[in-house]
Design a protein around this nucleic acid. Sequence first.
DNA 1: TGCTTGACAGAAG
DNA 2: CCTTCTGCCAAGC
Length: 112
Amino acid sequence: MKDYNDTMTPEQARQFRDDVLSIVSQIPPGRVTTYGIIAVWAGWPSHARMVGHTLRYTPEAHNLPCHRVVNKDGRTAPGWLQHRLLLQDEGVHFRPNGNVDMTMHLWKPDFP
DNA sequence: TGCTTGACAGAAG
DNA sequence: CCTTCTGCCAAGC
């Protein structure tokens, strides 16, 4: 897996964004995945933060199930109150501490 | 140009 | 379980 450790070219940034959106669009209802997993899968393991940034600031992402993306601990996005409700509507179970039960709902991309 | 901010992750206490 | 710290890196100012 590549990780060039220098700044992305605009083209790489575009590719990264497209990959992120593509992966998010494949998350099944009632399942969740993490920013880190998406970053790794997009081919930029150290760019977990950029996944969040992409979902937050890319309009197209708002048509996708981006609420099915949480952080590694199953915590919902700070400052996005509906996040938790949207997941609950899909039957996602939350633990007493307020986090998603990852052992039960974590989903990982699987295609060649 | 340089410093600060995060929809993050991982380890440590 | 929660807080703090370090590493990370594009964006904003």
